[in-house]
Amino acid sequence: MSGLVLIVGRDLRLALRQSADAWLAVLFFVLTGALFPFGIGPEPSLLKLIAPGVIWVVALLAVLLSLERLFLADYEDGSLEQLLLSPLPLELAILGKVLAHWLTTGLPLIAAAPLLAVLFNMDMAGLGVLLLAMLLGTPILSLIGAIGAALTLGARRGGVLIPLLVLPLYIPALIFGVGATDAALAGLSARPDLMLLAALLLVMLVITPLAGAAALRQALE
């Protein structure tokens, strides 16, 4: 357990020293979101309608941006091999890296989401559910993304490959995340969608360490 804390602490320190990276994801999130009104016109009622969907899709793309770095730096400087040799199970190490990734990407995105909600004139009654759904959903994005990042280590054009592998697997999280917010905005219960998101999170918490460790082992073989 202390090993896990050490890994998270190390990755967080590294991220804080290069805090530009976390800002970049947030900047991308807000900027891309702000492009939509230019694309479809500034009609407030239309923007209001698509707000949850746009926020989710843009968050998904912002997470995608930072995935390639998840293991690449450690792979290139050899610390990933040390991690493999250490007594800490590789599965646990992966969970630590994913947690650090979520803290530096997912959490800032959640913090920036209200800004986009305001820009899109979203009904503030749905904001709480939107944030709750993102709190459950963005860790899923980090978890699934970690598998893609581990699989493409050392591949030609790895960065281009990750979206192709990961985006189809993101669709359930997207559906339930938007579903929860839309239900809350329509005055329905968001509970079923939130429960399904939580279930998906639990499933990925099991699959990611196993699949990620298998992928990392074959990358370091």
Binding site: I147, L151, G154, A155, L164, Q218
Partner: peptide, 23 residues
């Protein structure tokens, strides 16, 4: 795409196999 992304075909096989199981 993953199957053909590596110089070493063996790695392509392994990575694609993990992806197929996750899929």
């Amino acid at each position: 795409a993953l199957m053909h992304a590596f110089e070493d075909q063996q790695r392509g096989y392994r990575a694609a196999a993990v992806l197929a199981l996750v899929g």
